[in-house]
């Protein structure tokens, strides 16, 4: 499978994402510069974490209008798979490809630590092969990760199984106590209605290498790759 990792000025998880996909998951990867408009026939696009455009105005607000994003939006609208991690999630929300928005953490602090998340369902490629009972330990590192959507939007998202992951504790209990940033309903990741665009604040690419002592994130990326390969289609016709 061929991945495209978009590099914005200020991206800082692009290399980790490329490393994990190429070296650990044995996938083909190209880097897509934010000023490019050629997606190089990739099968899936990842918007990595970081601080695109210095997080000026709002996280993701300026990156959303960079030249590559026009093509990413077209690709997503044709059914192409797109995953946004952390800042990438913020960019996808700003672009309107995902519902909701990400606000400053409730405690006004940048939070960098391991947390646990639980798949809400098994309906999207990103959580299809995960065990709904097994919490995954994944690091977060963000200042603006408080997911918010209106009650009407949330109710539609619940009906369509668009909530991918919720924050929980190490035994899978979901409660406010285990919500690191004040996200509504402990939401850590969401997808669009057609389940081809995914966004999550936790960093699966930082929990994929055996050397780091935690490979829970690899399960998420492996689920994506396996499910997408099963129904491989071209988005460039």
């Amino acid at each position: 499978m061929k991945f495209g990792v978009v590099v914005f000025p200020g991206s800082n998880c692009d290399h980790d994402t490329v490393y994990t996909l190429r070296e650990i998951l044995d996938q083909e990867v190209v880097e897509l510069w934010h000023k490019d408009t050629d997606l190089q026939d990739v099968d899936m696009i990842i918007l990595p974490g970081g601080f695109s455009y210095g997080d000026y105005l709002r996280s993701g607000a300026i990156a959303r209008y960079s030249p590559i994003m026009g093509k990413v939006i077209e690709f997503a609208e044709r059914g192409g798979y797109v995953l946004g991690i952390c800042n990438g999630f913020q960019i996808l929300c700003e672009a309107g490809l995902l519902p909701g928005a990400l606000l400053h953490n409730q405690n006004q602090k940048f939070i960098c630590k391991n947390i646990y998340i639980l798949p809400d369902n098994n309906e999207a490629p990103v959580n299809r092969l995960l065990d709904k009972e097994k919490p995954l330990k994944i690091p977060i590192a963000h200042g603006e990760g408080r997911y918010f959507a209106s009650p009407e939007t949330l109710s539609m998202m619940r009906q369509n199984n668009q909530i991918l992951f919720r924050y929980c504790n190490d035994s899978g209990e979901i409660s406010e106590q285990y919500n690191p940033n004040g996200s509504v309903e402990n939401i850590a990741g969401v997808c669009n209605e057609t389940k081809n665009v995914f966004g999550m604040m936790p960093h699966p690419e930082r929990a994929a290498d055996d050397e780091l002592g935690n490979t829970d994130g690899r399960l998420i990326l492996e689920s994506l790759i396996k499910i997408i390969l099963e129904k491989k289609i071209s988005y460039y016709n």
Binding site: Y65, A101, S150
Partner: peptide, 8 residues
């Protein structure tokens, strides 16, 4: 378009 996000 850019200066404000009506969701928030």
């Amino acid at each position: 378009k850019i200066l404000a996000n009506p969701i928030m």
